[in-house]
């Protein structure tokens, strides 16, 4: 029982990181119907920003997190402006291939600058408490609470503010909304900034939880976060959060009870089974094709 509780805590930690990244995928998909395959690599860039700031500027945790989020968000906006915007009216596949290309570029550029895995210094002096046999570290608590807080802020922005209303409107109908005086380009840039900023925050937290970072770490984590977004129903923000936690728990539980090499097989097989029964994810709605 205690073992399961312990693993549940780990699942919550991993799941909140997946959920933060999945939010970036799902926001961009919702507004542009484009899969931003470079998102996992932006997550990696976030971890590297955290490394640079922590080592060279020697800042503490909160400024490091904020600066990394800011850096990744501006990178995301730049990528959107120069790589995706010219393709907004091109065939959808060209945009996807461009995203793959941008992702490869980020990976290899980081690899060229830093060929060896780097080690992030400890920013938080983690203390471990023992709650009835379950060991809880303050780092885990910080990661879980911070990601939940970020998700609630995002949910508030999207559901309650004017900007969020504009985002939802654009994802509803892209041709009418500009006629209503909504500055579409600004809203899309803002969506990219928020989505990639969350990815950057996830990168910082991942870097603190698993301190060895390398340029290819974004691939696997990114694809898994994408799958979480699909499980929750891509384009749906609350779905992405749920999907992230589901995938995190499945992975941790598989690793806890089976040999850990089966982790990927089981989680992807579960994805396929889920998609057979609910092709649009848990919270996604089917959108029938109109003639």
């Amino acid at each position: 029982m205690i073992y399961i509780l312990q693993q549940a805590l780990n699942a919550l930690q991993l799941g909140s990181i997946y959920a933060l990244i999945a939010l970036g995928y799902t926001m961009v998909y919702g507004i542009l119907t484009m899969i931003n395959f470079a998102h996992g690599d932006l997550f990696m860039v976030g971890a590297f920003f955290c490394f640079l700031i922590a080592v060279y500027l020697k800042l503490s945790f909160v400024p490091t997190l904020l600066l990394s989020m800011l850096g990744v968000a501006s990178l995301g906006v730049i990528i959107e402006r120069f790589a995706y915007k010219p393709l907004r009216n091109a065939p959808r596949v060209s945009a996807i291939i461009t995203a793959l290309g941008v992702g490869l570029f980020l990976e290899n550029f980081t690899l060229a600058l830093s060929p060896y895995p780097q080690h992030i210094p400890t920013l938080i002096n983690s203390t471990t408490w023992n709650l009835g046999g379950v060991s809880v570290s303050s780092l885990q608590i910080i990661i879980i609470v911070l990601s939940l807080a970020l998700m609630f802020i995002l949910d508030f922005i999207v559901q309650r503010t004017k900007v969020g209303m504009a985002m939802r409107a654009i994802s509803w109908d892209k041709t009418i909304v500009p006629l209503m005086g909504v500055p579409v380009n600004k809203i899309i840039s803002l969506t990219f900034a928020i989505g990639t900023g969350l990815g950057g925050a996830a990168g910082v937290m991942y870097g603190l939880a698993y301190p060895v970072i390398d340029p290819y770490m974004g691939i696997m984590v990114g694809w898994k976060a994408f799958i979480s977004a699909v499980v929750g129903g891509i384009g749906n923000i609350r779905g992405a959060m749920i999907g992230g936690f589901i995938l995190g728990s499945v992975e941790i539980m598989v690793a806890a009870f089976l040999p850990s090499t089966y982790r990927d097989v089981v989680s992807f097989a579960l994805l396929l089974i889920l998609l057979i029964f609910r092709p649009y994810g848990i919270l996604g709605k089917p959108h029938p094709q109109k003639v």
């Binding site: 790589a83 065939p91 461009t98 490869l104 570029f105 550029f109 690899l111 060229a112």
Partner: peptide, 21 residues
């Protein structure tokens, strides 16, 4: 060396922007 893997995706992105097909 490593930089060729930086130029290849960059070329791909430029190709997609100027010749999407």
């Amino acid at each position: 060396g490593v930089w060729r893997m930086v130029f290849m995706p960059l070329m791909l992105v430029l190709l997609m922007i100027y010749r999407p097909r």
